[in-house]
């Protein structure tokens, strides 16, 4: 009879549907399918897709590769902690190390060029949040995540941590430069 009483009909499965429900189900289903196929569609025709490329590795191995890149392409140091700034050649592999509570090195990239950026944490989870672009990616310890990124316009950007990582979480920020 009502939703808090058992159905009056013993067999309710065969009751006819009203037109409202039928029409709405069809419309909603079509919309659901459109939303579903939008995702594979964007993998084929869209520009912004999160890479599937990832490897298991150890913090030591990752830090070693990062240090090699810093040694090769360092151009200067910045900030009171003298964080190295690297300017890697286009197309190269760059390692960005997240740890409590800093990002290293600072990257200087060229607009319009692509880079393979490896993201990994040395300790806990961190969040790579590139502002003001607003690209947000989870950074795990033990998983080397390889993104191919193409900065579009020159400017000063910031990487802030947006995965809670303890008491100084809100201090974990680094610049990222894009030059012509």
């Amino acid at each position: 009879m009502s939703a808090i009483l058992p159905p009056t009909e013993r067999v309710w499965w065969k009751e006819p549907l009203d037109r409202v429900e039928l029409l709405w189900i069809v419309i909603a289903l079509v919309w659901c399918l459109i939303m579903f196929f939008m995702m594979p569609y964007w993998h084929v025709y869209g520009q912004q897709n999160l890479a599937n490329e990832a490897y298991k590795t150890s913090p030591e191995a990752f830090a070693k590769k990062a240090d090699e890149v810093i040694a090769k392409y360092k151009v200067r140091e910045e900030g009171p902690q003298k964080i190295p700034v690297v300017k890697p050649p286009a197309g190269s592999d760059v390692y960005l190390v997240a740890r409590l509570w800093s990002w290293q090195p600072i990257l200087e990239l060229e607009a319009g060029k692509s880079y393979r950026i490896h993201l990994m944490s040395m300790d806990w989870l961190h969040g790579f949040s590139l502002q003001p672009e607003n690209i947000n990616i989870e950074v795990h310890p033990g998983y080397d995540h390889v993104l191919t990124v193409t900065p579009t316009a020159p400017g000063k950007f910031s990487i802030i941590c947006n995965e809670y990582c303890g008491i100084n979480h809100h201090t974990m920020i680094s610049p990222l430069y894009v030059v012509k």
Binding site: Q47, I135, V149
Partner: peptide, 8 residues
């Protein structure tokens, strides 16, 4: 989304 940096 289509206005942010290309990414793959």
């Amino acid at each position: 989304l289509s206005t942010v940096w290309p990414l793959r």
